[in-house]
């Protein structure tokens, strides 16, 4: 299952809930304000590094760029994708949940 999160982890608990209620082998895609979770020396990155042990994590590149998020500070393992990659992820997973 593909879990899509679009909220900053510093504003809402959507990412936390998506992690809590997703199974190993699922994928988490960060879009819009959720891309702030993917970079820097933060509690969110620490959580995502833990998540990466049994799940895939992706971040939408254009949203990182739009926000000036430091791509160099995105930890290894978090894959940066474009909109075509987003479509591929949706196709690759039998179901999709947006944690709105």
């Amino acid at each position: 299952m593909l879990h899509i999160v679009n909220k900053s982890p510093f504003e809402k608990n959507s990412l936390e809930t998506a992690v809590r209620l997703s199974q190993p082998d699922s994928a988490i895609l960060l879009i819009e304000d959720a891309v702030y979770a993917a970079s820097g020396d933060t509690s969110a990155v620490t959580m995502l590094k833990d998540v990466l042990r049994d799940r895939q994590v992706f971040a939408l590149g254009p949203d990182l760029q739009a926000r000036g998020v430091d791509v160099e500070k995105v930890p290894d393992g978090i894959e940066i994708i474009d909109y075509e990659g987003f479509v591929d992820l949706v196709v690759a997973h039998e179901s999709t949940q947006s944690w709105l």
Partner: peptide
């Protein structure tokens, strides 16, 4: 909200593919 933009860009990418 950006969501409508994201939806549009996603839809366009899906059509391109």
């Amino acid at each position: 909200h950006q969501a409508s933009d994201t939806a549009y860009l996603f839809a366009s990418a899906a059509l391109r593919k």
